[in-house]
């Protein structure tokens, strides 16, 4: 009976057109399962057994990536309910709390996920440093990682303004006033970021576009480079 169902599910032309190999029961089919799948093929087909040990990496990089993934999903859902307008944004926060089903959990997941990501990316960097994983031939990928950390901070900061409450407004006011202290370009740069002299509607829409469009695309691209280089640089750093 079970065999029969299995045959119907796995042995038809549709299934075989999607997954060209059979069930990954032996080494060759396992290789194919990874190699012929777009989402899995960033992995090598085979890895060192000791690279699998949790204590080698503590999973910190992967956790950071998962958090980014969760933030993308919850972020898209939040975009259905949020309008970046100074008269509407705060009301939308209240609606998420009191009117939208599971709206508060959605916002909480996005907020705590964001805080966690900042911490986890930093911890990931510490792990790579303390295991000397940045050394040749991984110098460039370490640099990409540092830029990713800066981008994470930028993402978190641009998102911080969006609830348009006192916490958001004054935190961002402090940070943009900091930009002003830059020599030569400080004033102009602050004007560019804020879209005026005061944090208002122009700042809100600029931060919003950066937060939901520009920075996520940039980070996605950098993550692709980061993962690609892990493969090209020979996987997890190992003692010689």
């Amino acid at each position: 009976m079970i065999e029969k169902v299995k045959n119907i599910v796995f042995q038809n032309r549709f299934w075989k057109s999607v997954f060209r190999h059979g069930m990954p029961v032996n080494a060759r089919l396992r290789s194919e399962a990874v190699m012929s799948n777009l989402f899995l093929h960033i992995h090598p087909v085979k890895i060192y057994k000791d690279s699998l040990l949790f204590r080698k990496t503590l999973g910190l990089g992967l956790i950071s990536f998962y958090l980014f993934f969760i933030l993308c999903i919850t972020g898209i859902l939040l975009m259905f309910y949020y309008i970046p307008h100074v008269q509407r944004a705060y009301q939308d926060m209240k609606d998420l709390e009191f009117a939208v089903s599971f709206g508060m959990i959605l916002r909480n997941m996005h907020r705590w996920g964001a805080h966690s990501m900042v911490a986890l990316v930093f911890l990931h960097m510490c792990r790579v440093f303390y295991t000397a994983g940045y050394r040749h031939p991984r110098e460039f990928n370490w640099g990409v990682g540092v830029i990713l950390f800066v981008c994470t901070l930028a993402l978190s900061l641009t998102g911080y303004l969006l609830p348009w409450d006192q916490l958001a407004f004054w935190a961002i006011t402090i940070v943009v006033n900091l930009i002003e202290t830059m020599p030569i370009i400080g004033d102009d740069l602050r004007y560019l970021v804020v879209g005026g002299t005061l944090v208002g509607q122009n700042a809100l829409i600029r931060f919003y576009v950066m937060h939901v469009m520009v920075l996520p695309l940039l980070v996605t691209m950098l993550i692709a480079v980061h993962f690609w280089r892990i493969r090209k640089d020979g996987g997890l750093a190992r003692p010689e």
């Binding site: 916002r107 705590w112 609830p163």
Partner: peptide, 26 residues
């Protein structure tokens, strides 16, 4: 590991609410 991360974030989100103060007032 993904399950663990999901459980942690969901758990946090059920028990702790994100802060929201008064509406922005320059």
């Amino acid at each position: 590991l993904f399950y663990l991360v999901m459980i942690f974030i969901m758990g946090m989100s059920v028990f702790f609410d994100a802060p929201l103060e008064e509406m922005a007032n320059p």
